[in-house]
């Protein structure tokens, strides 16, 4: 069974072709990273797969079900962490995750357990506005996972985290994947992709340039290097948006 199967996905905003005929298959239980410079089309691609943005062309299936037209049956089975911290204003950490849990028919017990798993037990009564960037990020991930989804999408989950929080989060993400869930994440950190991902898709200008295991990509380099060298050799060194 394929967790994600996309064929020829295309999205255009006016003149700009954000995603240009992308096809990809993600196997059940796979951990996949989507890499690319800013403006490469990563977020738009993910949003089409999640069911947030209707593709102009192509089709996409998640867990063997069509995502479009909007498929309500898929919603409890996928978990999404968006780039921004999408919280209810002025709620505490605990109220926040319990509210999201209720939307999925999940009780407050599992919700509180998730706060523990992401290390926010001493922040349960802190309002979300008063959390640090890293704490907010962890809460946002916990809110995406509270209903125990089969496929998880994370958009730059470790942005704004300090190295301690980043490594702890890696462990968390790896454990989520070990329990059989499919994980798709976007990131700018090559070490993160190398450490966590079974395969990485390198995107630029709305297309997937390569979709391979980090080891294969690195072995193809002319001189010994890292995944970052692979990334730069694929996407060039000019500044992006």
């Amino acid at each position: 069974m394929a967790a994600i199967s996309a064929r020829n996905l295309t999205k255009t905003y006016g003149e700009l072709v954000a995603v240009d005929g992308v096809s990809l298959e993600v196997a059940d239980g796979e951990f996949v990273g989507v890499l690319g410079p800013n403006g490469a089309g990563k977020t738009t691609l993910l949003e089409m797969i999640e069911g947030l943005r209707r593709p102009d062309g192509g089709e996409v299936h998640v867990l063997d079900e069509p995502v479009w037209p909007r498929n309500a049956g898929l919603r409890p089975r996928i978990g999404v962490q968006l780039q921004a911290s999408s919280f209810f204003e002025r709620l505490t950490t605990r109220e926040q995750i319990r509210t999201f849990a209720s939307l999925y028919g999940v009780g407050s017990g599992p919700a509180d357990e998730w706060l523990e798993r992401v290390g926010l037990t001493d922040k349960v009564d802190t309002r979300v506005e008063d959390l640090s960037g890293g704490q907010a990020q962890r809460l946002s991930i916990a809110c995406a996972l509270v209903h125990d989804p089969e496929v998880v999408f994370l958009d730059e989950p470790t942005a704004a985290l300090d190295p301690q929080a980043r490594r702890n989060l890696w462990d968390l993400l790896a454990s989520i994947n070990d329990s059989g869930r499919t994980v798709v994440l976007t990131t700018h950190y090559m070490d993160e992709a190398e450490a966590l991902c079974d395969r990485v898709a390198v995107m630029d200008h709305g297309r997937i340039l390569r979709f391979e295991t980090p080891a294969v990509l690195i072995s193809e380099l002319d001189t010994p290097g890292t995944l970052e060298d692979v990334f730069l050799s694929l996407t060039g060194r000019e500044y992006r948006a």
Binding site: F88, E89, R90, E95, R98, T99, A101, S102, G105, R127
Partner: peptide
Amino acid sequence: MSGRARGPFWALSLAILRGFLRDR
């Protein structure tokens, strides 16, 4: 209320009401 899930409608209403009352 512990352990039991509130219905989505009440959960949302409560979240919005709290957000309002806490906004001086």
